[in-house]
């Protein structure tokens, strides 16, 4: 099983791309950081508005900025998959399977992203999304929405923290 997974998770084409294109690993890192700044920065703004900072901002128009956070997420996921699937290009003794099995920071980070996803799902399912989008200037969010926002804020900062630790967990 482990061999099959390890084989399946090695992508020689991505390894080859990193090995043959000078500076490509650094380039991916740059885009990973741009993505993370967009994602975490904009999500934190949104969460803080729900928690009561900058309360004069109406929420629905603020949410029009969220597609840029999604763009950041996509950038980070694409480059992040590149790092994991092409890891052998950078570290000869590591590969995707090994790093997913042994790197505790990567594991915590992925769990954090999963939990943030569930939290987002709950934001919609609980009806808080509609309640929050209806908030005009100066209006306070419901308590449950604040709990969701605080969870999101904690999770994304935690994901950033764990993400930066990943190289030390190899």
């Amino acid at each position: 099983m482990a061999e099959v997974l390890a084989y399946w998770m090695r992508w020689p084409s991505i390894e080859g791309f990193f090995l043959q294109t000078n500076g490509s690993w650094a380039l991916f890192e740059i885009f990973h950081f741009i993505g993370l700044a967009l994602l975490v920065g904009i999500v934190v703004m949104f969460d803080l508005r729900i928690l009561g900072m900058a309360k004069r901002v109406p929420v629905a128009p603020l949410a029009e900025l969220l597609p840029w956070a999604v763009l950041g997420f996509v950038l980070a996921v694409v480059t992040g998959l590149g790092f994991v699937l092409g890891l052998r290009a950078n570290l000869y003794h590591a590969d995707a399977y090994k790093v997913l099995m042994t790197d505790v920071y990567l594991q915590l980070k992925l769990i954090g992203i999963g939990l943030a996803g569930l939290n987002l799902l709950f934001f919609y399912v609980s009806g808080m999304q509609r309640a929050v989008y209806a908030l005009g200037p100066g209006e306070d969010a419901p308590g449950l929405a604040k709990v969701i926002a605080a969870t999101s804020l904690t999770l994304w900062i935690g994901v950033t923290w764990m993400g930066r630790m990943v190289p030390w967990g190899l």
Partner: peptide
């Protein structure tokens, strides 16, 4: 330092 980057650059 990375968290600070996100808080400054994102907004």
């Amino acid at each position: 330092h990375t968290v600070g980057l996100a808080l400054l650059v994102g907004p």
